[in-house]
Amino acid sequence: MSDTTVRHDVATARSARLTIEPPGLWKQVRTHVWRNIKHIRRMPEMLADVTFQPIMFVVLFAYVFGGSINAGVNYREWLLPGIMAQTMAFSCFVVAIGLTNDLNKGIIDRFRSLPISRASVLIGRSISSLIHSSIGIVVMAVTGLLIGWRIHNGFGKAVLGFALLLLFGFAMMWFGILAGSRLKSAEAVQGVMFTAVFPLTFLADTFAPAANMSPAWLRTIAEWNPISSLVRAMRELWGNTVPLAPDSALPLHHPVLSTVIWSVLLTAVLAPLSIRAFNHRTTD
């Protein structure tokens, strides 16, 4: 077969391909999500943060520290919403690291040279991270069921609890986008995010009751921590909690509402900042 025939076929096909309509935003987002999920499948170790790590925390706290922590209730039941919230808070790591890598490798530039919406990259990144974290939530739930955690208040409230978790995860995405756009390397992201988010998840009503924290100002910070609202909300909805200390901070008296307010507030502040940081990073 001659070279001419091949080349002619290619040329014909190529000109035929010119009459293509650009895809809608939803298809673009789906494509980005597909890519990110492929990454997880190629590198299952990426899932360590939502599998081994939280399981390790469950084991560590339920069996190692648990005996010494007085939560006034079955500690393992009480603990589980806390670890779920921590796992969700950490999901912003995934966004940040993925984004920084894409920026550094120039693939974002390639996307920007295509006739597609520039927001689709970020939306796709956020959705895949929520999927990523949801895997962690399922793993946590199964681990919890194995060690005695139960949902006591019926299906509707159970779903509402998970919905709040995802809502909070969505707010944290923006923090991930902000960090990923600002920081220059995956190592920097790891370092900064760990330093920022790790204490945030501990200085809350997650692993030990905030009510027992002293001095008093530490307790106040912990109780106003959005994560405490989220955790309290899940515990109330799932029936994993104890009566609230009457002198607790205001958000904990209305945990579901506070979680919604915190999430909206975080998004309202972080979304414009992170979009600005991303645009700044990608335009010159």
């Binding site: 391909r17 293509i20 309509e21 650009p22 895809p23 298809k27 673009q28 494509t31 597909w34 890519r35 390639r110 996307f111 295509l114 006739p115 597609i116």
Partner: peptide, 9 residues
């Protein structure tokens, strides 16, 4: 495939 779908093929 990635670039093709982003172009809408």
């Amino acid at each position: 495939l990635l670039m093709g779908s982003l172009y809408g093929l």
